[in-house]
């Protein structure tokens, strides 16, 4: 469907000179996956690693995009050239998606590059597409690269949490201290934002997060360096909190460097991507095996209760990872 008159090499050459459509095309190749994405990866892998990678996550409607809109103004004013990867869900029923983050992001300045990515449902697709897209934007000179995802779904949380700095956006009125202590999203935060801080209950939300962090300190679950994630009050209607948030991001970046955590974090990110790639390939092999005649025999034997689920899985595993 797409006119691919240019090779990935030609696109990359155009992209590093700042041609927006060439960057856009490279990101499409990354999203497609397969050989095209591998070719782009080969071009960008070595040239990346300079950009600060920031993740922003939080529940739907918590104001992530509006906050980002304010934050981008601060980042551009500070002399940086930011790029955003905004992830929105695809419909599991139709595969379609409404990518609406740009509605809130007022980025008429040409310094900022924004790309919307739909989750597209296929297993591990997002876990591969996002690191690939980060590499492209990093390699062509954007810094920082910001990933925005809804904080639902393990893959979405994982890709955001594997950033250098992860920001979790919370709102007033979304629960008490007990909610804040439930495991999950809040544990991945390097920085908290209580957004919509003009609404009643914002100080309660702040107190609940503080209490949660106190308990993390007591149980030894805090950062190994003893760093306590700051809590920033923000209100995107008037833009308050954005400058404080940027200072906190810069401070966290310096902290990562000072404590030698930056390399550990990035190594962890590479490892996570490697795991995603391998598990994606293994899942493909599994699907092929299950679709084969022998695979169908095993499934039939399982349905007829002639073999147990564990016997069936052993047989399939032997076939999937057999070494010929």
């Amino acid at each position: 469907m797409k006119r691919d008159s240019q090779t990935p090499v030609e696109l990359f050459d155009a992209a590093i000179t700042g041609q927006r459509h060439a960057i856009g095309r490279l990101l499409s190749l990354v999203e497609q996956g397969g050989e095209a994405a591998d070719a782009v990866s080969a071009l960008t892998h070595e040239k990346s690693g300079d950009a600060m990678v920031i993740g922003i996550t939080g529940p739907p409607g918590s104001g992530k995009s509006s906050l980002l809109s304010q934050l981008l103004k601060v980042i551009v004013a500070a002399g940086f050239r930011p790029a955003v990867i905004a992830v929105d869900p695809s419909s599991p029923l139709t595969g379609g998606a409404i990518l609406g983050d740009r509605v809130r992001i007022d980025a008429t300045d040409t310094a900022t590059f924004i790309r919307s990515i739909a989750t597209r449902g296929h297993s591990g697709g997002l876990a591969l597409a996002v690191p690939g897209a980060v590499r492209v934007l990093d390699a062509v000179g954007f810094n920082p690269v910001i990933i925005e995802t809804v904080g639902v779904g393990q893959v979405e949380v994982d890709v955001t949490a594997s950033a250098d700095t992860t920001i979790v956006v919370a709102n007033p009125g979304t629960g008490d201290a007990v909610q804040a202590n439930k495991a999950g999203l809040l544990e991945v935060a390097d920085i908290f934002v209580v957004n919509k801080s003009d609404l009643p209950g914002s100080n309660d939300a702040r107190r609940d997060l503080e209490l949660m962090l106190d308990l993390s300190h007591m149980t030894g679950q805090e950062d190994s360096t003893g760093r306590r994630p700051p809590i920033i009050m923000a209100n995107s209607l008037e833009g308050s909190g954005a400058a404080e948030l940027w200072s906190a991001i810069v401070e966290h970046g310096e902290h990562l460097v000072a404590t030698n955590q930056i390399d550990t974090r990035r190594a962890k990110r590479q490892l996570a991507e490697l795991r995603s790639r391998v598990s994606d390939a293994l899942l493909d092999a599994l699907d092929n095996e299950l679709a084969s005649e022998q695979g169908a025999d095993v499934v039939a034997a399982l349905s007829d209760r002639r073999i147990t689920p564990s016997e069936a899985s052993s047989q399939i595993i032997d076939r999937v990872i057999r070494i010929d």
Binding site: G96, L99, A118
Partner: peptide, 16 residues
């Protein structure tokens, strides 16, 4: 229209 196209499997970049 955004919803119609979404339900037809398109990725709609909505600017409004």
């Amino acid at each position: 229209v955004a919803r119609i196209l979404r339900d037809a499997g398109c990725e709609v970049i909505y600017l409004g």
